[in-house]
Design a protein around this nucleic acid. Structure first.
Lengths: 237, 237
DNA sequence: AAAGGCGATTGACCAAGATCAATTTTGGCG
DNA sequence: CGCCAAAATTGATCTTGGTCAATCGCCTTT
């Protein structure tokens, strides 16, 4: 919940060994640049439920997710929450133009990030258009995902929302880890509901319905996709 | 509807005189660069209802809106539509990483754009990090707006949606044209509904309700904001 | 000036999903 | 191993917004 003390590793790691080397912002850097870049970031660990940064906080750092899952969300004054995305390894967080974060980010389970102080990172980008281009690419990709999510939120039924979420989430994990027999769902039902613009009860009922129809099997911490075609049919509608 | 013949102006205009000079992508260019840039764009006119580009079209151009209003939208296979935004003068369209547009864009009323062929524009950016930085800035701003819109779509009631839309739209026009006594709404009720994830009937009823409460007055082609405080209270909720 | 047509409004009714309220399941922990 | 707390599920009922169906009003066209 509150940002408690976090472990900060000494810089005894190398970008070249990084798990997200290929997919993260730093994929645009060559070996020489990478060595310089190494001094900018430091690994920081967060435990389940910890907040990495909050909406309206002044941005002092950028983050590269290395391990774990984060929920990115916005709150209305009365407490209603909309999760605007889940961040996975390789995702880059903290870009904004107002100088403040425009959403909050919590760790779901244990998370490791590569944290960059804003100013030196900004200076490093300064004369490396490659890196800027990479950041731009990531922003544009996210924008496209955001628009897809608007369609989901504004125009799809509960069944379609849940089915689309399961397939999309599986797809992201597949891209990250290769094949999966089960689809882990580290986030709570409430998180899923707040991501899909539904209530927890509707999410739960929809899961149960999918299971009754033999499309999925609900297991601890995730689901098993028994009949992907059926789920896809539901998602397409 | 279908892209009919459009008038293309000869290059008898100057970027330095451009109506959106200060706010558009080109605001990052100096006088010398601007003169070179001038040769890249050409003004193109569209009439009401014409499609400027469609989702899944291969991207061959970027567009800078000079005049008029466009609706940006995505369609589901069964025809449901989600409007992901309205474009106004100064907005830059066409960025993507897949090489295809990820939404469609129609003119609402008459529209003039400054159109850039993708390849020469890309080359021009190549050695002008300033311009790239500006484009990045615009993408990040849009991303922030997209997230706000997700909250609206996923977590707000019909009344809140409509009130928020009216205030937000007014705000954009204010920034563009200075003070307004009335708020013009060039888009149809259906467009508003598809932007807010509602039906046309709900939008209409909500407008009527706001009018009965003395918050707005519905006039031809727009509304008059009689009681901004009341509308803001509704929007905040 | 009359007519036609399209977009907007209004009303009656309906249903998807929310809300309220128990249970049940699960996992952590003594 | 058994208890407690939190999360998830399930059921009953309600509400918001959607659907279906006229009707209205305004603008354009002849």
């Amino acid at each position: 919940m509150k940002p408690s003390v976090v472990a900060i590793e000494p810089n005894g790691y190398f970008c070249s060994d990084c798990a997200v080397r290929g997919s993260a912002v730093c994929s645009s850097l060559d070996a020489a640049e990478l060595r310089e870049f190494e001094h900018l970031g430091r690994h920081v660990h967060f435990t389940a439920g910890e907040t990495v940064f909050s909406e309206e906080d002044i941005t002092t750092s950028f983050y590269n997710v290395l391990d774990g899952v984060m929920r990115l969300y916005k709150l209305l004054p009365d407490g209603r929450r909309q999760i605007v995305g889940f961040a996975l390894p390789g995702d880059f967080l903290g870009m904004n133009i107002s100088g403040r974060h425009n959403f909050s980010a919590d760790a779901i389970g244990a998370v490791t990030v590569c944290q960059f102080a804003k100013v030196p990172f900004g200076r490093f980008i300064e004369d490396r258009p490659q890196l800027l281009r990479r950041i731009n690419e990531l922003a544009i990709r996210e924008l496209s995902q955001a628009r897809d999510h608007m369609v989901l939120l504004g125009r799809r039924s509960a069944d379609e929302k849940v089915a689309t979420f399961l397939l999309g989430w599986r797809q992201r994990l597949l891209a990250l880890r290769g094949s999966l027999d089960t689809v882990p769902l580290p986030m709570s039902r409430q998180d899923i509901a707040d991501y899909l613009g539904l209530t927890i009860e509707t999410v739960s009922r929809t899961f149960t319905k999918l299971e009754r129809h033999g499309a999925i099997e609900i297991i601890y911490g995730g689901i098993r996709l028994l009949d992907p075609a059926r789920v896809e049919a539901l998602a397409a509608a």
